[in-house]
Design a protein around this nucleic acid. Structure first.
Lengths: 244, 244
DNA sequence: CGGCCAATTGACGGCTCTCAAATTCCGTGG
DNA sequence: CCACGGAATTTGAGAGCCGTCAATTGGCCG
């Protein structure tokens, strides 16, 4: 386990120093007793929590006490079966609501591990449910968040079940690119927060195959990749490969 | 499309002829304004609907008007990407709640197609939401149903991403067996409602590979399969293959 | 009886995995 | 600041599993 003793990244420190401007938060209805209620009335436990690279926000088997909103940084969500086989099901970034899979049984079924120093908001599940009972729009928002995870998971199923490795990687890059764009970063040049091993696991491949696909895509002048630094040279070609 | 003009199967006719004993239904809190309220006060639209083999309960693109509980029979849930690639994400049987993926956007993202003549309960989504607002236990039940779909989807991800074809098929058979047992049928001998093509699609394989795995498992005396009729001879060996 | 579809089996090729080695990066300690 | 060690990444060679193509069988329905 990598538990480096470095401080938080610049992005993480920035957010931790921010005032709690929950007004701009996408899931504010879930945390606030009523839309527009005084923010200072929030329970003290609605707190931010810093997570260092390699640390877990929660692990499979933990009781469901909080859901978490990822405020800054990035994570990997990993499930493990009894024989130890692992599958990374998602790489959430800022804005994502984490821990929804625990709602079925009251126990987390996955690990959420920080890919970099990150910041999460802990949302006590009991408070959140009470809030949904009082506020129909909050309930609807929660429904949508859970359903979103279903759809995302189903799309990944199609990728693993029906696509060649080249197409999987191309689609993964397009997804990352759109994610970066949605957060106001360059969609053409960014840093991969996850290792090749993480990518391979997520896409149902081996590390070496990921490297070889990277090499092929670079030879074809679709991307330029050096370690974690990725430049997308021909996003249209990548989209055509994915075909959807 | 196979739209045979046969009548409903015996199981389907049995349920259709049943009185509306919603008291024994797992999702009754979702349909009833309040637990214990008079059943006769239910809206007329809370109706059963018969679906013939090959027909769709809903299709991708349909607006979300109802969720559906599968009362009798079986379905396949299928997603399609813009280029026409398809992936069967689940084979729900009686008791399952269908259409949850539509909650994110208000539009269905998958097709639900009957594998045999079946019966569903249509649950108007607006009524259901209103009910969740009045009844916290109904809201909780709905949350759990949605979260259940997430967990099921994630487990399938691990299967497609990390398992060999033999292990996928073995795990699929164990799942079917447990499903049959949970419904009071023999877990050792039953009929596959889906085609080899459906199985192959669901498990990310080709038809021919499914046939070959069946042949291998039969040679190893783990199963006996003839067309759609499956006998499980050594469930422990199948479980050991799956390893979880 | 004939046609169509599901299912099965064989041959072959290729994509991906496995094994191995070299290189670079990064953090740690001297 | 430099040296060292481990981890991450890359590339090659070879094998094997699985997909592709093809042919056959058997059952169902018109």
């Amino acid at each position: 386990m990598d538990t480096s003793s470095f401080g938080l990244s610049r992005a993480a420190r920035h957010v931790a120093a921010m005032p709690r401007d929950c007004e701009s938060c996408a899931v504010a209805p879930l945390c606030h007793p009523l839309a527009g209620a005084a923010p200072q009335s929030l329970p003290a436990s609605y707190g931010r929590r810093r997570v260092r690279r390699g640390e877990a926000v929660y692990r499979a088997g933990d009781p469901l006490s909080n859901l978490y909103q990822l405020r800054a940084g990035s994570m990997k969500i990993r499930i493990t079966n009894p024989s130890g086989a692992e599958q990374i099901t998602a790489f959430p970034v800022a804005g994502a609501l984490l821990g929804l899979d625990a709602i079925e049984t009251g126990t987390h079924t996955s690990d959420a591990i920080a890919l970099e120093d990150s910041v999460v908001c802990a949302l006590p599940y009991a408070d959140l449910m009470a809030n949904c009972n009082r506020d129909a729009s909050a309930a609807r928002l929660l429904h949508q968040c859970i359903a979103h995870d279903i759809n995302q998971c189903q799309r990944l199923l199609l990728t693993l079940g029906r696509m060649t490795t080249d197409v999987r990687v191309a689609g993964f890059m397009v997804d990352l690119s759109e994610q970066m764009a949605a957060h106001g970063y360059s969609p053409r040049e960014f840093v991969l927060k996850m290792t090749r091993e993480d990518i391979a696991n997520h896409l149902g491949m081996q590390i070496e195959t990921v490297c070889r696909v990277f090499s092929r895509l670079q030879s074809a002048a679709l991307i330029h990749v050096s370690k974690r630094h990725l430049k997308i040279l021909d996003v249209d070609a990548l989209r055509r490969m994915r075909c959807g």
